[in-house]
C-alpha cells in the first residue's frame, strides 16, 4: 500500500543546529499520528518542510506517491495536504463565516470578480462546518473578537473546508485551558472522522495523545527516536526520560 506521506533522508540544519536529521518516515491513509517531543526537537520544522514553508538541505517528501519536495504551500494544499498553525492564522478583519467562505471558494477555485463571496460558496458546506465546530452563534463576528480556543477551532475549520486528505495540526490545544482541551479535541476528532481525513497533530499533553492518537512518533534532536503504538512509545524508558521528563 502506497504511503500517503513519505519522507526519505530528510535533513536540514540552521547553522550548527540540526533541525531534521535524516528522517525516514511514512504515514498511511486513516492513521491519526501524534508527534511528541521537547521544544526545539524539530517537530514544527518537520511540518514546515512537509507543507512547503521550508526547503530541506537534502532528502525528499512524497505525498500520495508524488514528490512534493520544495513545492510551494499553495501547490501542496491543492494536492490535498492542509495544515493549521500553533498561532491561529485567520483573516482578522473578516467575520468567522467569511473566513470559511473564503476557504470554500479557494477549494472550489471559484474566486471571481463578479460573484459575491456569500453566493460563490456552497452555503450548506459552511453551515455544516460551523455547526460541527460550534461556531454558528459567532459566525457574523470578526475573528479578532474570538477567544483563543475558538480561534484554534476556526483555524482548523478553515483547513477542513478544503476537505484535505491529510491535515497536519501544529499544537491544536496550546494556549487553551486544560478544561477546554478535551472538548476542543473531541470536536476536532469528530470533524476529522466525518471527513475521513488522515491527520497528524503535534501535542505535549500525554493524556490527549493517549486518548486520540492511533500512532505516536517521538522526536529527539531532529530525528524520530521512537515510532509506533501509543502504549509502546509512551512506555519506552528513553522517551519517558528525554521527551516526557518522567
Amino acid at each position: 500500500m502506497t504511503a500517503l506521506l513519505e519522507t526519505r533522508g530528510l535533513s536540514l540544519s540552521f547553522g550548527g543546529i540540526v533541525a531534521a536529521d535524516n528522517i525516514d518516515f511514512s504515514l498511511h491513509e486513516g492513521e491519526r499520528l501524534a508527534v511528541i517531543g521537547q521544544n526545539g526537537a524539530g517537530k514544527t520544522t518537520f511540518i514546515n518542510i512537509c507543507t512547503g514553508l521550508i526547503k530541506p538541505d537534502s532528502g525528499s517528501v512524497m505525498f500520495d506517491g508524488k514528490v512534493i519536495t520544495a513545492r510551494s504551500p499553495r501547490d501542496i494544499v491543492r494536492r490535498g495536504m492542509a495544515r493549521s498553525f500553533q498561532i491561529p492564522q485567520l483573516f482578522m478583519e473578516h467575520t468567522v463565516r467569511q473566513c470559511l467562505e473564503l476557504s470554500g471558494v479557494a477549494r472550489q477555485r471559484k474566486l471571481s470578480l463578479f460573484t459575491n463571496l456569500g453566493k460563490a460558496n456552497d452555503g450548506p458546506g459552511v453551515d455544516h462546518i460551523l455547526e460541527l465546530v460550534g461556531l454558528r452563534e459567532r459566525q457574523h463576528e470578526l475573528c479578532d473578537s474570538l477567544p483563543e480556543g475558538q480561534r484554534k477551532l476556526l483555524d482548523v475549520a478553515m483547513s477542513l473546508m478544503l476537505r484535505p486528505r491529510l491535515l497536519i495540526m501544529d499544537e491544536p490545544t496550546s494556549g487553551v485551558s486544560t478544561e477546554e482541551k478535551h472538548d476542543l479535541m473531541e470536536i476536532l476528532m469528530e470533524a476529522l472522522e466525518e471527513q475521513k481525513t488522515t491527520s497528524i497533530f503535534v501535542e505535549h499533553d500525554v493524556d490527549i495523545v493517549k486518548r486520540y492518537a492511533s500512532r505516536v512518533a517521538a522526536w529527539i534532536s531532529g530525528a524520530v527516536a521512537a515510532d509506533g503504538a501509543p502504549d509502546t512509545v509512551l512506555a519506552d524508558p528513553t522517551i519517558q526520560r528525554e521527551v516526557l521528563g518522567i
Partner: peptide
C-alpha cells in the same frame, strides 16, 4: 464584495494563510 475582492482584502491581514488555502 466579490469572492476575489474579499480574498484580495485578506492580503492585508494574512497573506500566508491565503497561500495555505491554495490561493495565489
Amino acid at each position: 464584495r466579490s469572492s476575489a475582492g474579499e480574498a484580495m482584502a485578506s492580503i492585508k491581514t494574512n497573506e500566508d494563510r491565503l497561500e495555505y488555502l491554495g490561493v495565489s
